[in-house]
Design a protein around this nucleic acid. Structure first.
Lengths: 351, 351
DNA sequence: ATCACTCGTGGGAGCGCTCCCACGGTACCT
DNA sequence: AGGTACCGTGGGAGCGCTCCCACGAGTGAT
């Protein structure tokens, strides 16, 4: 039964027309069946579906894209390379969420790198040419022009890690504030009195929110804010080392540190060890991200886990909704949405 | 000067025809210029290029794909999810290499997940429909039918981590044999006498090659193979723990362990510590992958680094060559190529 | 019976490009 | 001078699909 339709020069793939002939209907009708239009009688639909199955028909994406002026593709823009995005476990987890959510659709996922200038230029062309129906943006810097370009071109887009509280794009984020807060509250509940914080890069909105969470947790426990306990870091290990050294100098009596990333915590741990502080006996340590480093650190590091896979799913969900909303009536604007997903404190022996 | 060509229903993108009109030439000529055909006079080419620039013309991929019966897209098939591929640093590094090499081309990268059955089915349809010009396959299992499907459909494909010495697909691999060998030779050179090996999953070709390298290094040093020093693992931490426990039982006098992955080494390290063995004083430890875990382990882990980014580049290079070779004359077969890239031993304090 | 609608259907037009054939012009041979 | 070759060029045909208009048949109100 197989092997039919092996004619034509295009490699033998059956076309709509061939399916129509086989089913004894017109081209338009087959198109309607393929696209799930309700305006087809049950008998006809069955006949067409049989023909599709027999011929092994698969629609030609290029032809569809050309005729319908849509691409059924979305782009995941990776700002490359030393951004946190590529760090474990962020990338793979998010991709897993994205993939899972995409599996139910006809959409295909394009990976686009936007690191170098040449790549960014190519990306702009891509977008200008409307070669994708929507865009997923991850961990862009506060001053990145990309989001504004997207807004201007009116291309549906969802950003992970909004750039500010007033993010213009639909966004998905984890609860940085709540995560930080729960980490600090956990330290206080464990009897710690002097909790320091090594921040992330403060031009990243999420890092600011973590500082907010840290402050409010202390305030909530009736402790005033000791600004000398807050030391800026940059998410890196070296930054963690530097910050920890300064903190020890300024506040040698501290008994807990909340670091804005696991890598930062690893740096801090090293300096603490060298200073003869035991973890967790003398100083409790909490990180952020729940990465492999946290699990394998000695002692294993308490850390705030972000539901990254869920974030990936959520991003796709919001993006598809936005694309669908834009299709029939470009004017009807659904208003930006901002999803914030809860974090989870994974307690290990470092605290 | 901008803003021309804002007619037609397709959103105002200029078309070939409009560029042709602007440049005062025919459609075919513009096409030739766009595609870099030599059969165009310099004057005409300059005129067309000017028109292209003025109008901001970008070719419509869908139309091109439809007319030329090619897609200018390649797929990266991710077998998901618990495969080693998704582990750090494999995925991101490879992607970086792939992205870098792709930046010079017009090719776009499609990410396709082939974890669930539904996803695999969709992938098969994809391939059957020739929706991509080529396929990148990473870390497939020995019994995966995918490579054979690709060969049968005659779709250009490159696999990373060949499934056997007789891999039918063009492949790129790192030198697992040499990497293992150098690790063991390093241990021997450090004066270690009894070197154990915790293997990876032995249905993975690369893991077998590492065992070979381990054996030959010992043999080369005039030591016979003590099979009781080889314990099968599975690349996981738990596997590392189990294997290490058994090794200690059988050969309590061992003074070095070569583990087939950093994660495995982490598991082994834990058991060694609990058994009161100091690293590296009593037992030297070497891992494989040079992942974040290796850098952050206590003590930092000596590990074999694979040039994963290079492998990504190499894969794209081979794939593009294969695609190009197939374009004009489908018959001319270039013969499978197998690239093997050198590894590098990163010595840290664990050995 | 007539009209007005609706429903399911067929097929023309056209999306923007590449491929290829045909054409006039120039250069070089005989 | 005529012939042959090739070069640069224009434009028709067609890739496989969606969109939409038109058409016949059925349905219910008048």
């Amino acid at each position: 039964m197989a092997g039919h339709g092996a004619r034509g020069r295009s490699g033998g793939r059956p076309t709509l027309e061939e399916v129509a002939a086989r089913a004894g209907v017109g081209r338009g009708t087959v198109s309607r069946v393929i696209n799930g239009s309700p305006r087809v009688s049950d008998a006809t639909r069955a006949a067409v579906e049989a023909a599709v199955a027999e011929l092994g028909y698969v629609p030609n994406t290029a032809a569809r894209a050309l005729a319908a002026n849509r691409t059924d593709a979305i782009a995941l823009v990776v700002p490359e390379p030393e951004t946190r995005f590529f760090a474990e476990p962020y990338f793979s987890d998010m991709l897993r969420g994205v993939g899972a959510e995409l599996a139910d659709t006809e959409m295909q996922l394009l990976l686009i790198f936007a690191g170098s200038d040449r790549e960014r230029q190519r990306l702009a062309q891509y977008l200008a040419a409307h070669r994708v129906d929507g865009v997923l943006l991850v961990s862009v810097h506060a001053d990145d022009p990309l989001p504004d370009l997207l807004a201007q071109l009116e291309i549906p887009a969802v950003i992970s890690g909004p750039r500010s509280a007033a993010e213009a794009l639909t966004s998905v984020d984890s609860d940085n504030y709540g995560g930080a807060r729960s980490a600090v509250e956990h330290l206080l509940a464990g009897g710690r009195r002097t909790v320091a914080h090594i921040t992330g890069r403060l031009d990243v909105y999420g890092a600011q929110r973590r500082v907010d969470g840290y402050r409010d947790a202390l305030r909530g426990a009736g402790r005033g804010a000791d600004e000398l306990l807050v030391e800026p870091g940059d998410f890196t290990e070296e930054g963690g080392r530097r910050a920890m050294a300064r903190l020890l100098e300024r506040r040698p009596g501290l008994d807990a540190v909340f670091a804005a990333s696991d890598v930062t915590a690893a740096g801090a741990r090293q300096v603490l060890r060298e200073a003869g502080r035991r973890i967790p006996e003398d100083v409790a340590l909490v990180g952020y991200d729940d990465s492999a480093i946290a699990r394998h650190m000695d002692p294993p590091l308490t850390s705030v886990r972000q539901p990254i896979q869920e974030m990936g799913r959520e991003m796709i969900g919001l993006l598809l909704a936005e694309i669908a909303d834009r299709r029939p009536a470009p004017s009807r604007d659904v208003g930006r949405r901002h999803a914030v997903l809860p974090t989870e404190l994974v307690v290990r022996t470092s605290s």
